[in-house]
Design a protein around this nucleic acid. Structure first.
Length: 452
DNA sequence: TTTTGAGTTGTTCGA
DNA sequence: GTCGAACAACTCAAA
């Protein structure tokens, strides 16, 4: 089929900002139609979670990268503002498009919006189809033997391993056929995603947003760090983790591509290093599974007894935490790394989160909101799982008595102070805002108070 | 059907 | 210095 007479397809990009292994794009190409790549900025449609400042910075870079990759293939990115429904209808009528294809999202607000958009497009006689480009296992495909969603990771993982892992599609188009008539477009800069005061110098140094940057990151990890991953992933001073989280969040690389690149076997078994990393990739799946099945979890604890937890509001302590001025070098380093680069090492995320929730007794939701605004990899599913896990109120959560000692954690995972010296330059740390032993006892009492 | 055992990431205390 | 126990409650799967 040449498709020369086929009306064009609108390819609605969201969190799938890539051309390789993109099922919606593949489906559009298969029709032989011209493709009109579209991004619609509609933060009002994200419920309580419009993208934060760090995410918006990343998004701006990623859109520029996508546009440039499209232009290299004879195409371009059409940019519009929401409301999404109106934008898609206008773009379709301006271009004569007869179909809209996209890859699915799983956040509650996005699911509701996408459902509405799909039926509205179909009512208008357009073909509207969605695909899976972001997960290995969509949330409704994994369940336990009683037919309910898993709440414990290990059985979830074992069940995933019995399912076929999707193969990434190899096809990357050299050229994309342009439509006869391009619809109107805004400039990416016109969306005002980037800060007016340029605070992102540290971000630019640390990251290369976009599909080529994601591929480079994956290559580096596989070639230079994977073998040592089980030991090195916990050391914040060295690049022992993949650093793929923001690329995965924005879909600049897909999980099937990552699985394919990492999975390796020796003597009949998966190598321990590959398995350790793939488990982490499946934690991302588990987070999406939980968010989909428990849509209140971004704001409400999964364990109901936590509704009565005696949280404290201490604005000056919260502020000290956000600024990296708690007096605990590992905590302060993490918070400064976050502020400077838009990212924080996972080991340190656990320590700073535990410190906020247990040492300071400040609600996990406040920490989640700060991370949401400052992380370039801010992802509602992962952020929610992480904070509920640390607070002990989530699925498969940490036991209440597990209270990280920031000094012990530093001694164990940053024994040569490489990480702490990178982020805490002053000769003397501020006085600790709470004393560890006392804070620990207070936390144990608070957690005991909600037990039956 | 009921029981049993295991479960991402820890710390402290006392022998 | 090292080591085991204690620090809960609940989900899930296998026996």
């Amino acid at each position: 089929m040449t498709g020369a007479g086929n009306p064009p397809v609108l390819l609605w990009f969201r969190q799938d900002l890539r051309l390789s292994d993109n099922p919606a794009l593949a489906a559009a190409l298969k029709r032989g139609s011209a493709v009109i790549p579209v991004y619609i900025w509609a933060p009002d449609e994200e419920g309580d979670w419009p993208p934060g400042a760090a995410s918006r910075w990343w998004l701006a870079q990623s859109l520029k990268s996508l546009d440039s990759d499209l232009q290299a293939r004879g195409s371009r990115l059409i940019v519009s503002r929401g409301p999404t429904e109106e934008a898609l209808n206008r773009l379709a009528s301006e271009s004569g498009a007869a179909a809209v294809f996209w890859n699915r999202r799983y956040e509650p607000a996005a699911v509701a919006r996408d459902t509405r958009v799909k039926s509205s497009l179909r009512d208008k006689g357009l073909l509207a189809e969605s695909f899976n480009g972001s997960l290995l296992f969509e949330p409704w495909t994994i369940q336990n033997q009683s037919g309910t969603p898993f709440r414990v990771f290990t059985p979830f993982w074992r069940t995933c391993l019995t399912k076929p892992i999707p193969l990434p599609s190899k096809e990357v188009p050299r050229r994309l056929r342009a439509p006869e008539k391009w619809p109107r477009s805004l400039e990416i800069a016109g969306l005002n995603l980037e800060p007016s005061i340029d605070w992102a110098a540290g971000f630019r140094e640390a990251w290369q947003p976009g599909e080529p940057g994601a591929a480079r990151r994956l290559d580096r990890f596989r070639n230079e760090a994977l073998d040592q991953y089980p030991e090195d992933r916990d050391k914040p001073g060295i690049p022992g983790t993949s650093g793929l989280s923001p690329h995965l969040h924005f879909g600049e690389i897909g999980p099937a591509q990552v699985w394919r690149a990492i999975d390796s076997f020796s003597r009949g078994g998966r190598t321990p290093a590959a398995e350790a990393y793939l488990r982490q990739l499946v934690w991302r799946e588990f987070a999406h599974h939980l968010l989909y099945h428990f849509p209140d979890s971004p704001h409400a604890p999964l364990r109901p007894e936590f509704a009565g937890f005696p949280w404290k509001k201490k604005p000056e302590w919260f502020k000290a935490w956000t600024r990296g001025r708690t007096g605990y070098p590992l905590v302060d380093s993490g918070m400064r790394e976050l502020w400077h680069t838009g990212w924080m090492h996972n080991r340190v995320r656990m320590v700073v989160a535990s410190f906020l929730v247990k040492h300071l007794l400040i609600p996990w939701q406040d920490g989640a909101a700060w991370f949401w605004d400052t992380l370039v990899d801010a992802d509602l599913a992962n952020n929610t799982l992480g904070w509920q896990w640390v607070a002990g109120c989530g699925a498969d959560a940490v036991p209440y008595f597990r209270i990280f000692n920031p000094a012990t954690q530093a001694a164990k995972f940053d024994p040569d102070d490489i990480y702490v010296r990178r982020w805490v330059k002053e000769a003397a740390s501020p006085e600790p805002i709470v004393e560890h032993g006392e804070a620990r006892r207070r936390a144990l009492d608070a957690f005991a108070s909600i037990r039956k």
